[in-house]
Design a protein around this nucleic acid. Structure first.
Lengths: 256, 256
DNA sequence: GCAATAGTGTCTCTGAGACACTATGAG
DNA sequence: CTCATAGTGTCTCAGAGACACTATTGC
Protein backbone atom coordinates (compact mmCIF):
# COMPACT_ATOMS: atom_id res chain seq x y z
CA UNK A 1 0.00 0.00 0.00
CA UNK A 2 2.98 2.27 -0.33
CA UNK A 3 1.72 4.85 -2.79
CA UNK A 4 5.16 5.43 -4.23
CA UNK A 5 5.78 1.98 -5.63
CA UNK A 6 3.82 2.25 -8.82
CA UNK A 7 3.43 -1.42 -9.54
CA UNK A 8 0.11 -0.60 -11.12
CA UNK A 9 -0.41 -0.06 -14.78
CA UNK A 10 -1.78 3.43 -14.31
CA UNK A 11 -1.11 5.69 -17.25
CA UNK A 12 -2.41 9.24 -17.14
CA UNK A 13 -2.00 9.62 -20.86
CA UNK A 14 -4.65 7.05 -21.66
CA UNK A 15 -7.16 9.74 -20.60
CA UNK A 16 -7.82 13.11 -22.12
CA UNK A 17 -5.96 15.53 -19.84
CA UNK A 18 -6.16 19.31 -19.55
CA UNK A 19 -4.09 21.41 -21.92
CA UNK A 20 -2.92 23.70 -19.17
CA UNK A 21 -3.63 25.18 -15.75
CA UNK A 22 -2.76 28.86 -15.71
CA UNK A 23 -3.21 31.47 -13.04
CA UNK A 24 -4.63 34.91 -13.68
CA UNK A 25 -4.09 37.69 -11.20
CA UNK A 26 -6.36 40.62 -10.49
CA UNK A 27 -4.07 43.28 -9.05
CA UNK A 28 -5.97 46.04 -7.31
CA UNK A 29 -4.49 49.26 -6.11
CA UNK A 30 -5.85 52.55 -4.85
CA UNK A 31 -4.41 55.58 -6.56
CA UNK A 32 -4.47 58.91 -4.76
CA UNK A 33 -4.50 62.22 -6.51
CA UNK A 34 -3.92 65.42 -4.58
CA UNK A 35 -6.73 67.79 -5.29
CA UNK A 36 -4.87 71.08 -5.57
CA UNK A 37 -1.13 71.17 -5.21
CA UNK A 38 -1.07 74.17 -2.92
CA UNK A 39 -3.71 73.14 -0.38
CA UNK A 40 -3.77 70.53 2.29
CA UNK A 41 -6.78 68.39 1.59
CA UNK A 42 -7.78 64.76 1.46
CA UNK A 43 -6.85 63.28 -1.91
CA UNK A 44 -9.27 61.77 -4.39
CA UNK A 45 -8.87 58.03 -4.37
CA UNK A 46 -9.75 55.58 -7.10
CA UNK A 47 -9.73 51.79 -7.22
CA UNK A 48 -7.68 50.62 -10.17
CA UNK A 49 -6.45 47.35 -11.54
CA UNK A 50 -3.59 46.30 -13.75
CA UNK A 51 -4.08 44.89 -17.23
CA UNK A 52 -1.63 43.90 -19.93
CA UNK A 53 -2.13 43.98 -23.65
CA UNK A 54 -1.85 40.57 -25.28
CA UNK A 55 0.81 40.21 -27.93
CA UNK A 56 -0.14 36.75 -29.24
CA UNK A 57 -3.08 34.70 -30.33
CA UNK A 58 -5.71 34.30 -28.96
CA UNK A 59 -7.21 37.73 -28.25
CA UNK A 60 -4.11 39.34 -29.68
CA UNK A 61 -4.15 43.05 -28.93
CA UNK A 62 -6.87 42.75 -26.29
CA UNK A 63 -6.40 43.73 -22.67
CA UNK A 64 -6.11 40.84 -20.26
CA UNK A 65 -5.19 40.02 -16.71
CA UNK A 66 -1.56 39.17 -16.09
CA UNK A 67 -0.98 35.47 -15.60
CA UNK A 68 0.47 32.39 -17.16
CA UNK A 69 0.76 28.66 -17.17
CA UNK A 70 1.67 26.69 -14.10
CA UNK A 71 4.76 24.51 -14.13
CA UNK A 72 4.86 20.99 -12.80
CA UNK A 73 7.37 22.02 -10.14
CA UNK A 74 5.23 24.69 -8.52
CA UNK A 75 1.86 25.08 -6.83
CA UNK A 76 -0.81 27.33 -8.30
CA UNK A 77 -0.05 29.87 -5.61
CA UNK A 78 3.64 29.88 -6.47
CA UNK A 79 2.73 30.16 -10.13
CA UNK A 80 0.63 33.23 -9.41
CA UNK A 81 3.44 34.82 -7.37
CA UNK A 82 5.91 34.15 -10.16
CA UNK A 83 3.66 35.57 -12.85
CA UNK A 84 2.91 38.58 -10.68
CA UNK A 85 6.63 39.27 -10.44
CA UNK A 86 7.40 38.50 -14.09
CA UNK A 87 4.52 40.27 -15.74
CA UNK A 88 3.81 43.09 -13.34
CA UNK A 89 7.10 43.44 -11.50
CA UNK A 90 5.33 43.23 -8.17
CA UNK A 91 6.61 41.25 -5.20
CA UNK A 92 5.68 40.46 -1.61
CA UNK A 93 2.04 41.38 -1.65
CA UNK A 94 -1.09 40.05 -0.06
CA UNK A 95 -2.65 37.56 -2.45
CA UNK A 96 -5.76 35.44 -2.10
CA UNK A 97 -7.00 32.56 -4.15
CA UNK A 98 -10.24 33.60 -5.75
CA UNK A 99 -11.80 30.87 -7.83
CA UNK A 100 -11.37 28.33 -10.58
CA UNK A 101 -12.65 29.01 -14.10
CA UNK A 102 -13.32 25.87 -16.02
CA UNK A 103 -16.35 26.38 -18.26
CA UNK A 104 -15.80 24.27 -21.37
CA UNK A 105 -14.74 26.41 -24.29
CA UNK A 106 -13.52 29.32 -22.19
CA UNK A 107 -10.13 29.26 -23.93
CA UNK A 108 -9.75 28.68 -27.69
CA UNK A 109 -6.36 27.06 -27.13
CA UNK A 110 -8.02 23.99 -25.68
CA UNK A 111 -9.07 22.56 -22.35
CA UNK A 112 -7.57 25.13 -20.02
CA UNK A 113 -8.59 25.46 -16.41
CA UNK A 114 -7.64 28.82 -15.00
CA UNK A 115 -7.13 29.87 -11.41
CA UNK A 116 -7.77 33.45 -10.45
CA UNK A 117 -5.89 35.15 -7.65
CA UNK A 118 -6.58 38.53 -6.18
CA UNK A 119 -3.72 40.77 -5.09
CA UNK A 120 -3.99 44.01 -3.14
CA UNK A 121 -1.08 46.31 -3.69
CA UNK A 122 -0.10 49.60 -2.20
CA UNK A 123 0.21 52.32 -4.80
CA UNK A 124 3.88 52.77 -3.92
CA UNK A 125 4.66 49.18 -4.95
CA UNK A 126 3.46 49.90 -8.45
CA UNK A 127 5.44 53.10 -8.78
CA UNK A 128 8.69 51.13 -8.60
CA UNK A 129 7.38 48.98 -11.39
CA UNK A 130 6.39 51.62 -13.90
CA UNK A 131 9.86 52.29 -15.23
CA UNK A 132 10.38 48.68 -16.34
CA UNK A 133 7.46 48.40 -18.65
CA UNK A 134 6.26 49.87 -21.84
CA UNK A 135 3.35 51.93 -20.59
CA UNK A 136 1.26 51.13 -23.63
CA UNK A 137 1.29 47.41 -22.85
CA UNK A 138 0.95 47.39 -19.05
CA UNK A 139 -1.52 49.83 -17.59
CA UNK A 140 -3.67 50.65 -14.63
CA UNK A 141 -7.36 51.15 -15.34
CA UNK A 142 -10.10 52.45 -13.12
CA UNK A 143 -12.24 49.44 -12.30
CA UNK A 144 -15.31 50.76 -14.12
CA UNK A 145 -13.22 51.51 -17.21
CA UNK A 146 -11.68 48.05 -17.17
CA UNK A 147 -15.12 46.47 -17.04
CA UNK A 148 -16.14 48.40 -20.14
CA UNK A 149 -13.23 47.09 -22.22
CA UNK A 150 -13.34 44.07 -24.49
CA UNK A 151 -11.28 41.77 -22.32
CA UNK A 152 -9.66 38.47 -23.25
CA UNK A 153 -11.18 35.13 -22.19
CA UNK A 154 -13.57 35.30 -19.23
CA UNK A 155 -11.49 37.96 -17.56
CA UNK A 156 -14.40 40.34 -17.14
CA UNK A 157 -16.16 37.74 -15.02
CA UNK A 158 -13.01 37.22 -12.97
CA UNK A 159 -12.79 40.93 -12.29
CA UNK A 160 -16.42 41.09 -11.25
CA UNK A 161 -15.93 38.15 -8.90
CA UNK A 162 -12.79 39.72 -7.48
CA UNK A 163 -14.60 42.99 -6.88
CA UNK A 164 -17.38 41.24 -5.00
CA UNK A 165 -14.78 39.45 -2.95
CA UNK A 166 -12.70 42.44 -1.95
CA UNK A 167 -15.83 44.45 -1.15
CA UNK A 168 -16.88 41.78 1.27
CA UNK A 169 -13.41 41.35 2.73
CA UNK A 170 -12.92 45.08 3.05
CA UNK A 171 -15.79 45.14 5.53
CA UNK A 172 -15.18 41.86 7.32
CA UNK A 173 -11.40 41.70 7.59
CA UNK A 174 -8.54 44.16 7.95
CA UNK A 175 -7.36 43.97 4.32
CA UNK A 176 -7.74 47.74 4.22
CA UNK A 177 -4.20 47.68 5.56
CA UNK A 178 -2.93 46.45 2.20
CA UNK A 179 -3.90 49.77 0.68
CA UNK A 180 -2.61 51.91 3.53
CA UNK A 181 0.83 52.56 4.87
CA UNK A 182 1.76 51.07 8.22
CA UNK A 183 0.52 54.18 10.02
CA UNK A 184 -2.58 55.99 8.89
CA UNK A 185 -5.20 58.43 10.03
CA UNK A 186 -8.81 57.53 10.61
CA UNK A 187 -9.91 59.55 7.61
CA UNK A 188 -7.47 57.72 5.36
CA UNK A 189 -8.93 54.41 6.51
CA UNK A 190 -12.43 55.74 5.99
CA UNK A 191 -11.56 56.90 2.50
CA UNK A 192 -10.05 53.57 1.56
CA UNK A 193 -13.14 51.71 2.69
CA UNK A 194 -15.37 54.09 0.77
CA UNK A 195 -13.25 53.75 -2.35
CA UNK A 196 -13.68 50.00 -2.39
CA UNK A 197 -17.25 49.89 -1.08
CA UNK A 198 -19.07 52.86 -2.58
CA UNK A 199 -22.13 52.57 -0.37
CA UNK A 200 -20.18 52.59 2.87
CA UNK A 201 -21.12 55.39 5.25
CA UNK A 202 -20.73 55.69 8.99
CA UNK A 203 -21.42 59.08 10.46
CA UNK A 204 -19.67 58.40 13.74
CA UNK A 205 -16.86 56.37 12.21
CA UNK A 206 -14.12 57.77 14.39
CA UNK A 207 -15.96 56.97 17.60
CA UNK A 208 -16.93 53.47 16.63
CA UNK A 209 -13.53 52.42 15.47
CA UNK A 210 -11.76 53.94 18.46
CA UNK A 211 -14.15 52.70 21.14
CA UNK A 212 -12.13 49.80 22.39
CA UNK A 213 -14.77 48.01 24.39
CA UNK A 214 -16.76 45.87 22.04
CA UNK A 215 -14.36 46.31 19.16
CA UNK A 216 -11.47 44.85 21.13
CA UNK A 217 -8.93 47.01 19.38
CA UNK A 218 -8.46 46.10 15.75
CA UNK A 219 -6.47 49.34 15.56
CA UNK A 220 -4.31 51.14 18.11
CA UNK A 221 -2.77 54.60 18.46
CA UNK A 222 0.82 54.99 17.34
CA UNK A 223 3.13 56.46 19.97
CA UNK A 224 6.61 57.87 19.55
CA UNK A 225 9.70 56.83 21.50
CA UNK A 226 8.71 58.97 24.48
CA UNK A 227 5.28 57.43 24.62
CA UNK A 228 3.59 60.51 23.28
CA UNK A 229 0.83 60.16 20.73
CA UNK A 230 2.10 60.37 17.18
CA UNK A 231 0.26 62.77 14.94
CA UNK A 232 0.22 63.65 11.28
CA UNK A 233 -0.79 66.84 9.53
CA UNK A 234 -0.43 65.52 6.01
CA UNK A 235 -3.98 66.36 5.10
CA UNK A 236 -5.00 69.03 7.53
CA UNK A 237 -3.92 71.97 9.58
CA UNK A 238 -5.08 70.30 12.70
CA UNK A 239 -2.90 67.27 13.22
CA UNK A 240 -4.63 63.90 13.22
CA UNK A 241 -3.86 60.90 15.40
CA UNK A 242 -2.01 58.10 13.62
CA UNK A 243 -3.21 54.52 14.04
CA UNK A 244 -1.99 51.10 13.02
CA UNK A 245 -3.76 47.78 12.75
CA UNK A 246 -3.20 45.33 15.57
CA UNK A 247 -3.16 41.61 14.97
CA UNK A 248 -6.56 41.15 16.55
CA UNK A 249 -9.22 39.51 14.47
CA UNK A 250 -12.88 40.14 15.06
CA UNK A 251 -15.06 37.08 14.99
CA UNK A 252 -18.18 37.96 13.10
CA UNK A 253 -21.49 36.21 13.54
CA UNK A 254 -25.07 36.78 12.50
CA UNK A 255 -26.17 35.15 15.73
CA UNK A 256 -24.83 37.68 18.20
CA UNK B 1 -8.54 39.02 -33.70
CA UNK B 2 -11.31 36.48 -33.79
CA UNK B 3 -10.16 33.98 -31.20
CA UNK B 4 -11.77 31.10 -32.97
CA UNK B 5 -9.79 31.24 -36.18
CA UNK B 6 -6.66 29.53 -34.96
CA UNK B 7 -4.33 30.68 -37.67
CA UNK B 8 -1.53 30.61 -35.10
CA UNK B 9 0.81 27.76 -34.62
CA UNK B 10 -0.17 27.28 -31.00
CA UNK B 11 0.18 23.72 -29.82
CA UNK B 12 -0.63 22.93 -26.23
CA UNK B 13 1.22 19.66 -26.44
CA UNK B 14 4.57 21.31 -26.86
CA UNK B 15 4.34 22.09 -23.14
CA UNK B 16 4.17 19.77 -20.18
CA UNK B 17 0.49 19.73 -19.26
CA UNK B 18 -1.25 18.46 -16.12
CA UNK B 19 -2.12 14.78 -15.90
CA UNK B 20 -5.57 15.49 -14.60
CA UNK B 21 -7.84 17.87 -12.74
CA UNK B 22 -10.09 15.99 -10.36
CA UNK B 23 -12.60 17.21 -7.83
CA UNK B 24 -12.82 15.90 -4.29
CA UNK B 25 -15.93 16.45 -2.24
CA UNK B 26 -16.19 16.79 1.50
CA UNK B 27 -19.74 15.80 2.33
CA UNK B 28 -20.80 16.85 5.80
CA UNK B 29 -23.95 15.81 7.53
CA UNK B 30 -25.29 16.01 11.05
CA UNK B 31 -26.57 12.76 12.45
CA UNK B 32 -29.10 12.80 15.26
CA UNK B 33 -29.51 10.04 17.78
CA UNK B 34 -32.49 9.97 20.10
CA UNK B 35 -31.29 9.68 23.67
CA UNK B 36 -33.87 7.30 25.14
CA UNK B 37 -36.61 5.91 22.98
CA UNK B 38 -39.35 6.44 25.50
CA UNK B 39 -38.66 10.04 26.49
CA UNK B 40 -39.06 13.24 24.64
CA UNK B 41 -35.67 14.89 24.67
CA UNK B 42 -33.32 16.71 22.38
CA UNK B 43 -31.23 14.26 20.36
CA UNK B 44 -27.46 14.04 20.46
CA UNK B 45 -26.05 15.43 17.27
CA UNK B 46 -22.73 14.70 15.64
CA UNK B 47 -20.98 16.18 12.62
CA UNK B 48 -20.01 13.43 10.23
CA UNK B 49 -18.50 13.19 6.79
CA UNK B 50 -18.57 10.61 4.07
CA UNK B 51 -15.49 8.66 2.99
CA UNK B 52 -15.02 5.86 0.51
CA UNK B 53 -12.47 3.09 0.58
CA UNK B 54 -10.12 3.14 -2.40
CA UNK B 55 -10.09 0.03 -4.52
CA UNK B 56 -7.13 0.85 -6.74
CA UNK B 57 -3.60 2.14 -6.64
CA UNK B 58 -2.53 4.56 -5.24
CA UNK B 59 -3.53 4.36 -1.58
CA UNK B 60 -5.43 1.16 -2.30
CA UNK B 61 -7.51 0.22 0.72
CA UNK B 62 -7.19 3.64 2.33
CA UNK B 63 -10.14 5.88 3.09
CA UNK B 64 -10.50 8.88 0.81
CA UNK B 65 -12.89 11.62 -0.14
CA UNK B 66 -15.26 10.85 -2.97
CA UNK B 67 -14.29 12.51 -6.21
CA UNK B 68 -12.90 11.91 -9.65
CA UNK B 69 -11.42 13.33 -12.78
CA UNK B 70 -13.00 16.18 -14.66
CA UNK B 71 -14.02 15.68 -18.27
CA UNK B 72 -13.32 18.16 -21.02
CA UNK B 73 -17.04 18.71 -21.54
CA UNK B 74 -17.82 19.84 -18.00
CA UNK B 75 -16.81 22.50 -15.51
CA UNK B 76 -15.17 21.59 -12.22
CA UNK B 77 -18.44 22.31 -10.47
CA UNK B 78 -20.34 19.99 -12.80
CA UNK B 79 -17.67 17.38 -12.26
CA UNK B 80 -18.10 17.62 -8.50
CA UNK B 81 -21.88 17.29 -8.82
CA UNK B 82 -21.51 14.28 -11.06
CA UNK B 83 -19.04 12.56 -8.75
CA UNK B 84 -21.21 13.36 -5.75
CA UNK B 85 -24.10 11.61 -7.46
CA UNK B 86 -22.06 8.68 -8.81
CA UNK B 87 -19.95 7.92 -5.76
CA UNK B 88 -22.20 8.97 -2.93
CA UNK B 89 -25.64 8.79 -4.52
CA UNK B 90 -26.43 12.30 -3.39
CA UNK B 91 -28.18 14.92 -5.50
CA UNK B 92 -29.39 18.50 -5.30
CA UNK B 93 -27.41 19.71 -2.34
CA UNK B 94 -25.73 22.91 -1.35
CA UNK B 95 -22.13 22.75 -2.56
CA UNK B 96 -19.35 25.32 -2.30
CA UNK B 97 -16.01 25.47 -3.99
CA UNK B 98 -13.37 25.22 -1.31
CA UNK B 99 -9.85 25.42 -2.67
CA UNK B 100 -7.32 24.12 -5.17
CA UNK B 101 -4.66 21.61 -4.11
CA UNK B 102 -1.64 21.73 -6.34
CA UNK B 103 1.47 21.11 -4.25
CA UNK B 104 3.96 19.28 -6.48
CA UNK B 105 4.08 15.60 -5.63
CA UNK B 106 0.69 15.50 -3.93
CA UNK B 107 -0.44 12.63 -6.17
CA UNK B 108 1.85 9.74 -7.13
CA UNK B 109 0.02 9.33 -10.43
CA UNK B 110 1.61 12.51 -11.74
CA UNK B 111 0.91 16.21 -11.98
CA UNK B 112 -2.62 16.31 -10.72
CA UNK B 113 -4.32 19.47 -9.56
CA UNK B 114 -7.31 18.77 -7.38
CA UNK B 115 -10.29 20.95 -6.58
CA UNK B 116 -12.07 20.46 -3.30
CA UNK B 117 -15.77 21.11 -2.88
CA UNK B 118 -17.71 21.16 0.31
CA UNK B 119 -21.27 19.81 0.43
CA UNK B 120 -23.74 20.12 3.29
CA UNK B 121 -26.34 17.42 3.30
CA UNK B 122 -29.37 16.79 5.42
CA UNK B 123 -29.22 13.45 7.17
CA UNK B 124 -32.36 12.34 5.35
CA UNK B 125 -30.62 12.70 1.98
CA UNK B 126 -28.04 10.16 3.00
CA UNK B 127 -30.57 7.67 4.29
CA UNK B 128 -31.92 7.22 0.75
CA UNK B 129 -28.39 6.47 -0.34
CA UNK B 130 -27.43 3.82 2.17
CA UNK B 131 -29.18 0.95 0.47
CA UNK B 132 -27.25 1.37 -2.77
CA UNK B 133 -23.80 0.98 -1.37
CA UNK B 134 -21.73 -1.64 0.28
CA UNK B 135 -21.50 -0.22 3.78
CA UNK B 136 -17.93 -1.39 4.19
CA UNK B 137 -16.74 0.77 1.29
CA UNK B 138 -18.80 3.94 1.76
CA UNK B 139 -19.18 5.14 5.31
CA UNK B 140 -19.93 8.11 7.48
CA UNK B 141 -17.30 9.00 10.06
CA UNK B 142 -17.44 11.42 12.94
CA UNK B 143 -15.18 14.28 11.91
CA UNK B 144 -12.66 13.66 14.69
CA UNK B 145 -12.47 9.98 13.78
CA UNK B 146 -11.96 10.78 10.11
CA UNK B 147 -9.08 13.08 10.97
CA UNK B 148 -7.39 10.27 12.89
CA UNK B 149 -7.44 7.90 9.92
CA UNK B 150 -4.63 7.44 7.45
CA UNK B 151 -6.26 9.16 4.53
CA UNK B 152 -5.29 9.09 0.88
CA UNK B 153 -3.44 12.01 -0.76
CA UNK B 154 -3.75 15.34 1.04
CA UNK B 155 -7.34 14.62 2.00
CA UNK B 156 -6.73 15.26 5.68
CA UNK B 157 -5.70 18.82 4.85
CA UNK B 158 -8.78 19.23 2.67
CA UNK B 159 -11.00 18.11 5.52
CA UNK B 160 -9.35 20.50 7.93
CA UNK B 161 -9.77 23.36 5.49
CA UNK B 162 -13.40 22.42 4.92
CA UNK B 163 -14.03 22.33 8.65
CA UNK B 164 -12.57 25.79 9.11
CA UNK B 165 -14.72 27.00 6.27
CA UNK B 166 -18.03 25.60 7.45
CA UNK B 167 -17.35 26.79 10.99
CA UNK B 168 -16.94 30.29 9.70
CA UNK B 169 -19.91 30.06 7.38
CA UNK B 170 -22.11 28.54 10.06
CA UNK B 171 -21.75 31.74 12.04
CA UNK B 172 -21.77 34.27 9.22
CA UNK B 173 -24.35 32.86 6.82
CA UNK B 174 -27.54 30.85 7.05
CA UNK B 175 -26.04 27.52 5.91
CA UNK B 176 -27.40 26.04 9.12
CA UNK B 177 -30.52 25.54 7.03
CA UNK B 178 -28.77 22.84 5.01
CA UNK B 179 -28.69 20.67 8.11
CA UNK B 180 -32.23 21.45 9.25
CA UNK B 181 -35.58 20.73 7.78
CA UNK B 182 -37.58 23.57 6.32
CA UNK B 183 -39.25 24.23 9.67
CA UNK B 184 -37.33 23.97 12.90
CA UNK B 185 -37.38 25.01 16.50
CA UNK B 186 -34.93 27.46 18.03
CA UNK B 187 -33.28 24.72 20.05
CA UNK B 188 -32.72 22.63 16.94
CA UNK B 189 -30.98 25.57 15.29
CA UNK B 190 -28.96 26.15 18.43
CA UNK B 191 -27.92 22.52 18.53
CA UNK B 192 -26.86 22.51 14.90
CA UNK B 193 -24.69 25.56 15.41
CA UNK B 194 -23.13 24.04 18.49
CA UNK B 195 -22.47 20.77 16.69
CA UNK B 196 -20.51 22.50 13.97
CA UNK B 197 -18.89 25.19 16.15
CA UNK B 198 -18.12 23.55 19.49
CA UNK B 199 -17.30 26.79 21.32
CA UNK B 200 -20.56 28.46 20.41
CA UNK B 201 -22.62 29.58 23.39
CA UNK B 202 -25.31 32.22 23.69
CA UNK B 203 -27.23 32.26 26.91
CA UNK B 204 -30.06 34.36 25.56
CA UNK B 205 -30.06 32.77 22.12
CA UNK B 206 -33.81 32.69 21.74
CA UNK B 207 -34.16 36.39 22.49
CA UNK B 208 -31.39 37.50 20.23
CA UNK B 209 -32.48 35.51 17.24
CA UNK B 210 -36.13 36.45 17.59
CA UNK B 211 -35.62 40.15 18.25
CA UNK B 212 -36.37 41.44 14.80
CA UNK B 213 -35.00 44.92 15.20
CA UNK B 214 -31.30 44.79 14.61
CA UNK B 215 -31.40 41.28 13.23
CA UNK B 216 -33.76 42.25 10.40
CA UNK B 217 -35.44 38.88 10.41
CA UNK B 218 -33.19 36.14 9.14
CA UNK B 219 -35.82 33.77 10.51
CA UNK B 220 -39.60 34.06 10.81
CA UNK B 221 -42.36 32.22 12.64
CA UNK B 222 -44.23 29.58 10.69
CA UNK B 223 -48.00 30.03 10.65
CA UNK B 224 -50.70 27.59 9.61
CA UNK B 225 -53.45 28.19 7.06
CA UNK B 226 -55.57 30.08 9.60
CA UNK B 227 -52.69 32.37 10.48
CA UNK B 228 -52.12 30.73 13.86
CA UNK B 229 -48.60 30.09 15.04
CA UNK B 230 -47.37 26.62 14.17
CA UNK B 231 -45.87 24.67 17.04
CA UNK B 232 -44.01 21.42 17.48
CA UNK B 233 -43.74 19.17 20.48
CA UNK B 234 -41.27 16.74 18.94
CA UNK B 235 -38.75 17.26 21.71
CA UNK B 236 -40.73 18.54 24.62
CA UNK B 237 -44.00 18.46 26.43
CA UNK B 238 -44.34 22.18 26.07
CA UNK B 239 -44.73 22.85 22.36
CA UNK B 240 -42.09 25.03 20.75
CA UNK B 241 -42.60 27.64 18.08
CA UNK B 242 -41.50 26.58 14.60
CA UNK B 243 -39.37 28.95 12.50
CA UNK B 244 -38.05 29.03 8.98
CA UNK B 245 -35.23 30.98 7.40
CA UNK B 246 -36.21 33.97 5.33
CA UNK B 247 -34.20 35.04 2.31
CA UNK B 248 -32.71 38.00 4.15
CA UNK B 249 -28.97 38.24 4.28
CA UNK B 250 -27.21 40.05 7.06
CA UNK B 251 -24.37 42.26 5.95
CA UNK B 252 -21.55 41.80 8.39
CA UNK B 253 -18.86 44.34 9.05
CA UNK B 254 -16.13 44.85 11.57
CA UNK B 255 -16.65 48.57 11.23
CA UNK B 256 -20.14 48.88 12.64
C1' DG C 1 -11.08 86.17 9.69
C1' DC C 2 -11.92 81.58 6.49
C1' DA C 3 -11.41 76.98 5.04
C1' DA C 4 -10.65 72.30 5.77
C1' DT C 5 -10.01 68.57 8.56
C1' DA C 6 -10.15 66.55 13.45
C1' DG C 7 -12.47 65.47 17.15
C1' DT C 8 -16.11 66.04 21.44
C1' DG C 9 -20.67 66.65 24.17
C1' DT C 10 -24.80 65.03 24.85
C1' DC C 11 -29.08 63.09 24.01
C1' DT C 12 -32.15 58.94 23.11
C1' DC C 13 -33.14 54.29 22.49
C1' DT C 14 -31.95 49.62 21.42
C1' DG C 15 -30.02 45.59 22.68
C1' DA C 16 -26.44 42.55 25.09
C1' DG C 17 -25.78 39.92 29.09
C1' DA C 18 -27.03 37.87 33.40
C1' DC C 19 -30.05 35.09 35.91
C1' DA C 20 -34.10 34.05 38.31
C1' DC C 21 -38.50 33.17 37.22
C1' DT C 22 -42.87 31.09 35.01
C1' DA C 23 -45.20 27.72 31.47
C1' DT C 24 -46.45 23.22 29.56
C1' DG C 25 -47.83 18.61 29.67
C1' DA C 26 -46.61 13.37 29.60
C1' DG C 27 -45.54 9.85 32.71
C1' DC D 1 -45.18 15.71 41.60
C1' DT D 2 -41.20 15.52 38.56
C1' DC D 3 -38.65 16.28 34.64
C1' DA D 4 -37.13 18.31 30.39
C1' DT D 5 -37.76 21.71 27.37
C1' DA D 6 -39.78 26.45 26.24
C1' DG D 7 -40.04 30.86 27.09
C1' DT D 8 -40.49 35.67 30.05
C1' DG D 9 -39.40 39.60 33.54
C1' DT D 10 -36.36 42.66 34.85
C1' DC D 11 -32.16 44.74 35.83
C1' DT D 12 -27.76 47.15 34.28
C1' DC D 13 -24.72 49.03 31.21
C1' DA D 14 -22.49 49.57 26.60
C1' DG D 15 -22.91 51.44 22.48
C1' DA D 16 -25.41 52.92 18.00
C1' DG D 17 -27.06 56.90 15.82
C1' DA D 18 -27.95 61.77 15.31
C1' DC D 19 -26.27 66.26 15.12
C1' DA D 20 -24.57 70.38 16.95
C1' DC D 21 -20.65 71.86 18.82
C1' DT D 22 -15.49 72.96 19.69
C1' DA D 23 -10.34 72.56 18.20
C1' DT D 24 -6.31 73.45 15.25
C1' DT D 25 -3.66 76.01 12.16
C1' DG D 26 -1.96 77.70 7.35
C1' DC D 27 -3.20 81.23 4.57
Amino acid sequence: MNPLENESNYDAKQYRTPDGAPSDIIIFTIVSREKVAAKKALPDRELQLLLIRRKVWPYEGAWALPGGFCKESESMYECARRELAEEAGVQDVHMDYLNVYSTPGRDPRGWIISHAFCALVNESKLLERRADDDASDVRLFAVEDALRLELAFDHRQMIRDALDRIREKMLTTTIAKEFLSEEFTISELYQVIQTVVPGFEERNFIRKITSTQSRKGIIEEVRDAQGGLKLSNRYSQRAAQLYRFTNERRELSIYN
